[in-house]
Design a protein around this nucleic acid. Structure first.
Lengths: 234, 234
DNA sequence: ACCAGTTACAGTCACTATGACTCAAACAAC
DNA sequence: GTTGTTTGAGTCATAGTGACTGTAACTGGT
C-alpha cells in the first residue's frame, strides 16, 4: 500500500505465523499441535506459531516455528500460505494478525521429542477425544484440512506426503487418509499412470508387506503440478 | 500463536490491506488501480490499499480502501483473501505486511470519479501500453488473475461478475473475458444448465441486442458454490 | 411482405474419463 | 503344493465433453 505514516488510528499489529503441519502416520492423517506455555491456556493445544522477526520472511518464520516448538526440520517439506486471520479480539493479549501456513511432510523418523508437541489424529479433532484449541485455532484447522483435501484433487500435492521412491499403494493410502474414503486400487492406478507427468516409473520393485502379495513397482514424483484431468473425490 | 511479548528482535510490522478489484467492462476483464500520492512513485500505479486500523477487521479495511481511494462502495461484492505478502524489503518505507484481497463486482455505473483511480485492461498489463506498478504489486496482480481464472473453473464465482437477472450469454462473456478464450455457446449452455444449482431460471425474456437474435431466457444465481463437475478451461 | 443476418436453444455423434468388475501374475504363510 | 494377499492389466456400461447440425425468434434492409 501507500506511504507508511504513524497515525493514532493505525494499529500497531503484532504479526505471527502459525503452521498447520499435516503428515500421515500409520495410514491416518495427523496434525501437529503444541501446548502453549502460558498458564491460562493449560490443557489447550495450538498450532506451532512464532512472531515474525525483523528481516525475516514469513516462510522463514514458519520453518522456525516448526524447528523451535517441535524440533522438526523440514526444509524440503511442502509449505504454502493458507490464509491470514486478523479479527480484532481473536487474541487475548492484543491485536495479533496471524498468517497461517499449511505444511505437508512425509512420515520420517518420529519428529517430536519435545514434551509439549504431539500429533493428533484429525479424525479425533472436534470430538470429545480430540484436543481443545487455544486462540482461534479451531477456525484455522478446518480451513487447513479443507485446503489439503481440495488440493489433492487438482494438484500433484499428494506426492508431498510420501518419500521417493514410492509405490502406488502408498500414494493411494495418502488419498484415502486425507479424504477418509476407500479408493479402488485398479482405478486409482489407471488414473495416476494415465495422468501424464504425475508420477514416473523408477527402478526396482518394493518388497511385499507382511500379508504377502505381488511386489509393487516404484515411482518418483513427476514434473506435473496441476493434474489434468483432476482426481475428484468420490 | 503464543503470548505476545515485545522483544527487540520482533518486528513492529505495519499491516496493510491491498485489494485487486476485477470487473468486466465492454466484454473485457479490467483491474482497478490507483496512483499513490507519494512523489517518488509518480507515474506508477498501485492496488488500492490502506493500513489496518485498531478494532478494524481485515475485510473492513478492504472495503474502506475501495471506498476511500476509488469511491467504490461494494458491500455486496465478492471479497476473498488472496494471500499475504510480507517479504522484508518489499516496501521502501519499512516493514509492511500486506494482506491482499481479491474483489469481483458486476459492472455498475461508472464507479470511478476520482482523478487518481482508473480501470486497466488486464490484457494491457505487462505490455508497454500497461501500467508501471508501485511496490511489489506486479507480483500480486498475476496471483489475483490466476486465482480468479482458477476459481471460475470449480466454483460458481462467475455469477459475481453479472447482475441479476442475467442471460447465459452474459455469463458466457464472463468466462470468455476472464479466460481470454472463445467458448461454444451451445456447449456452454448445456454445461451450465446441467450443473445443478449453478443458475435457476427466472421470469421473462431479455430483449435481443442491436444485432437482433432470439430473446434469451433470464437466470439468477443458484445456491451452488462449488461446481460438480467443474467447468474446465479449454 | 420477404429475405438475409444474428442469436438462443435443442439435439446428434464420436471420443474420453470413470466406476464397477474380472482375471492373471507374483509374492507370503502354511 | 494350497490358500490368501496384493499388484497390475483388462472389460463393460455410463457420464461428460467438443464439434457440429438444425430450428426458433428476433433484427434490419429491400
Amino acid at each position: 500500500m501507500g506511504a507508511v505514516s504513524t497515525r493514532s488510528r493505525v494499529a500497531s499489529c503484532a504479526v505471527a505465523v502459525d503452521v498447520a503441519l499435516l503428515t500421515i502416520r500409520d495410514g491416518r492423517l495427523q496434525l501437529l499441535l503444541v501446548e502453549p506455555d502460558t498458564p491460562e491456556l493449560a490443557g489447550r493445544w495450538a498450532l506451532p506459531g512464532r512472531r515474525v522477526r525483523d528481516e525475516e520472511g514469513l516462510d522463514d518464520t514458519a520453518h522456525r516455528a516448526l524447528a523451535e516448538l517441535a524440533r522438526i526440520r523440514a526444509p524440503e517439506a511442502h509449505l504454502e500460505q493458507l490464509r491470514t486471520y486478523g479479527d480484532p479480539g481473536r487474541h487475548a493479549a492484543g491485536r495479533v494478525v496471524s498468517v497461517a501456513y499449511l505444511a505437508l511432510t512425509p512420515t520420517t523418523q518420529d519428529p517430536v521429542d519435545a514434551d509439549r508437541a504431539r500429533f493428533w489424529d484429525v479424525e479425533q479433532i472436534g470430538t470429545a477425544a480430540g484436543p481443545a484449541f487455544a486462540y482461534d485455532h479451531d477456525r484455522i484447522v478446518p480451513d487447513a484440512l479443507e485446503r489439503a483435501r481440495s488440493k489433492l484433487e487438482y494438484t500433484a500435492l499428494a506426492t508431498a506426503f510420501v518419500e521417493e521412491p514410492f509405490t502406488l499403494a502408498e500414494l493411494r493410502e495418502v488419498y484415502e487418509a486425507v479424504w477418509g474414503v476407500h479408493l479402488d486400487p485398479g482405478n486409482f492406478r489407471r488414473k495416476v499412470v494415465s495422468t501424464r507427468a504425475f508420477v514416473v516409473e523408477a527402478q526396482g520393485l518394493a518388497p511385499p508387506g507382511p500379508e504377502g502379495g505381488r511386489p509393487a513397482k516404484r515411482y518418483r514424483r513427476g514434473t506435473a503440478t496441476r493434474l489434468h484431468p483432476a482426481m475428484l473425490r468420490p
